[in-house]
């Protein structure tokens, strides 16, 4: 299965949530990989705490795998085994029964680029080969209407990938600015659907394969907010109601949502993987955050959750 992580705006927590989702899937026993297609600013290395690939690798990352016009006879894209290479001690002890967790980093000096037939050919080969090996490949795309997004839409329309399930997660914060932006990215002009149909996708099937993830959501009823004054809570409730109406207008309402990640200080201040240890022993992260990641990773694999739009 291929999972594409997209967002219209930066700062939605797309990358950090995606990293945590693949981490949860690996813990549950699936073989998973994470592909950093955020060519302008690869960050997955830092989230997984891979010391020498924090901002991508110097040579042979995904950007050069797809685009190297140099004669350098490229072979396969570079990969990093997170279980053995993470600087984080708790990650380096791979739990028994867990699956592979592999990072395909970007390049330090990568950049966005325009349409390229050769890049498309290589992208198709990459997805095909990784699908042979992994239960889930999560591809983290640059924010906005990027060429990376167009490239993967064209790649997944290629006959070579016709038997491969592809699902989309569109991340947005739960705010008045982010909701229309996310709706626009999917349904708007030059959005995912329009570009996808041009690339050869069936509109309805593609639409059914796109779900939204709300991030940094404040739950007025949560225990964390129990100290608020009644007027504040009432105001929050009004805002929430208002946002829900807005979401419905933009077709990013409840039926199109696959996950909700609560606001968590750990994610706000430092983008990192949240281990069970962070919740239980160190008590710095909220258990609801970890539960949200786990739930998202489970629902990604539940076919019934992806029927109908």
């Amino acid at each position: 299965m291929l999972v594409f992580a997209a967002s219209d705006k930066g700062g939605t927590g797309r990358s950090v949530t995606s990293c945590n989702v693949v981490y949860r899937s690996a813990l549950a026993g699936s073989n998973v990989c994470y592909l950093d297609f955020d060519f302008g600013s690869p960050t997955a290395g830092s989230i997984f705490q891979i010391t020498d690939a924090a901002r991508g690798v110097r040579k042979g990352g995904l950007h050069s795998y797809l685009l190297d016009t140099n004669v350098a006879p490229t072979g396969e894209a570079k990969r990093i085994d997170v279980w053995s290479r993470s600087a984080r001690a708790s990650l380096r002890q791979r739990p028994p029964g867990s699956g592979k967790l592999m990072l395909f980093p970007g390049d330090e000096d990568g950049g966005e680029f325009g349409p390229d037939k050769e890049a498309l050919r290589r992208c198709v080969h990459l997805f095909q080969a990784l699908d042979e090996e992994f239960d889930m490949c999560l591809i983290d795309l640059s924010a906005g209407r990027s060429y990376a997004t167009q490239l993967v839409l064209e790649a997944t329309a290629d006959p070579a990938l016709r038997g491969v399930t592809a699902r989309w997660l569109v991340f947005h914060r739960w705010t008045r600015q982010h909701i229309p932006a996310a709706g626009g990215l999917v349904y708007g002009p030059n959005g995912i659907l329009e570009v996808g149909v041009d690339a050869g996708h069936d509109r309805e099937r593609l639409r059914a394969a796109i779900k939204f993830v709300r991030t940094a959501v404040v739950d007025p009823d949560s225990v964390e907010l129990s100290g608020l004054r009644p007027a504040q809570v009432a105001w929050l409730r009004d805002c929430d109601e208002d946002l829900r109406n807005l979401a419905a207008t933009w077709q990013v309402g409840r039926s199109a949502v696959i996950g909700t990640v609560p606001l968590d200080p750990v994610l706000q201040w430092r983008e990192q993987l949240i281990s069970d240890d962070d919740v239980v022993a160190r008590d710095i992260a909220n258990s609801s955050t970890v539960e949200a990641f786990g739930e998202l990773s489970r629902r990604l694999a539940v076919d019934d959750d992806w029927i109908g739009a």
């Binding site: 350098a72 006879p73 072979g75 396969e76 894209a77 198709v124 080969h125 070579a160």
Partner: peptide, 16 residues
């Protein structure tokens, strides 16, 4: 990630 004369990529292309 590298191969002499791109032999690996050619081979992978055939697989694909």
């Amino acid at each position: 990630s590298v191969s002499t004369m791109g032999m690996g990529a050619f081979c992978g292309g055939l697989v694909g």
